[in-house]
Amino acid sequence: METLSPMSIDVETARRVAKLARIKVEDADLPALAQDFNRILGFVEQLNEVDVDGVEPMTSVTPMRLKRRQDGVTAGGMQDKILSNAPDAREGFFAVPKVVE
């Protein structure tokens, strides 16, 4: 069984996580972020004490079969509504900076 490693998060790891989360973090703020990570992950490390061998992850409060429905279109035809909150919408599309060079 894989367990949590006691390794601590360094500034480089914090930078990588911020990148993965697509949140810009200034270099000057990375050490404090790494420290927050270490405090939170240090706290959750207690989970290592629990014997979870053979335990299945919980899936629902009481056994329940998901409801089924006809596989059909139930909504649509509301382009204006979908675009109404967009910061930049043009000609029926969401507009974003150029993606392909």
């Binding site: 959750v44 629990v50 299945e56 992850p57």
Partner: peptide
């Protein structure tokens, strides 16, 4: 190590 372990502890 983190997520699946936490979900199992949740079951307990």
């Amino acid at each position: 190590a983190y997520y699946n372990r936490a979900r199992k502890v949740r079951a307990l």
